[in-house]
């Protein structure tokens, strides 16, 4: 009962016979099969374990670091997937050039809904691959959809889709829209003509008075190709408007467009 509480205490055992007590304990300690404390060298298994961990670390780092690129967010991708290129397209081919640039626009603005494979989501987002709307002779209707968005039901490849697509009039310029249209018209097995920024620009000008999204009923009034205005629209044709706008100076043009934008 006397030595337990705190051994700095001057209990009977400690004061007179400290050496003996320590010898006694040392003898007890030696009897144990344990190795001498504190001097235990690094176990070989520990070393092997660390080596295995280091090997794993190197493997994992090279496999899942997205090539250590600052713009790569998917860990499994070492190099970004090459943009799908129309068969036979050469480097100088304007279609493949537009497709390459359009792929970037598509990835950021379109693929969340229409999916990277262009197949959309059943019932909600219509497919673009093999879609009769995309493969139409001219870009008149799809360019309008991209510019102002689309709302309400639409029939694509015999199935009905009903959701809303937002407008890209303010976020994409003519060149970006033209490239992305060329991309969707020439990917996933699609094959259709190049869309030029000028065509998109004309449609943009011609529909600048439209603020709400398109509906299928309205779109069907627009001819599939050519520069004609939708039926029922004011007499002013886009071509005429384009001619009129060409006469303005850049500054005047800008202010007109800004006014129209309001």
């Amino acid at each position: 009962m006397s030595v337990h509480s705190d051994n700095r205490g001057q209990s009977g055992l400690d004061s007179g016979e400290a050496t003996d007590v320590r010898d006694l304990h040392a003898a007890i300690l030696r009897e144990r099969p344990d190795p001498i404390e504190g001097r235990e060298p690094l176990n070989l298994w520990v070393v092997a374990f660390i080596a295995a961990l280091l090997f794993w670390a190197g493997t994992y780092l090279t496999q899942y670091s997205g090539g250590f690129r600052s713009d790569e967010f998917a860990e499994r991708q070492i190099n970004p997937a090459p943009a799908p290129v129309a068969a036979g397209g050469g480097a100088e081919d304007p279609v493949s050039k537009a497709v390459k640039e359009g792929a970037i626009v598509f990835a950021t603005s379109c693929s969340p809904c229409h999916q990277a494979d262009g197949n959309g989501v059943s019932g909600q987002f219509p497919p673009l691959a093999a879609s009769e709307w995309v493969l139409a002779e001219g870009p008149n209707r799809i360019a309008r959809i991209v510019l102002n968005g689309l709302s309400g039901p639409i029939q694509v490849k015999g199935s009905e889709y009903n959701n809303a697509m937002n407008a890209f009039r303010d976020s994409l310029d003519d060149r970006q829209i033209a490239n992305v249209l060329t991309y969707i018209r020439n990917s996933w097995g699609n094959k259709a003509s190049l869309v030029t920024p000028a065509e998109v620009g004309a449609i943009r000008g011609g529909t600048s008075d439209r603020s709400q999204a398109w509906t299928v009923a309205d779109l069907e009034k627009v001819p599939v190709s050519g520069g004609a205005a939708p039926a029922g629209a004011p007499a002013l044709t886009p071509a005429a408007l384009k001619e009129a706008l060409k006469k303005l100076s850049p500054d005047e043009l800008k202010s007109v467009l800004q006014d129209v934008g309001k």
Binding site: S65, G66, D71, E72, F73
Partner: peptide
């Protein structure tokens, strides 16, 4: 975040 930062 860039994938490599998470991976590291």
């Amino acid at each position: 975040m860039p994938a490599w930062m998470i991976t590291v």
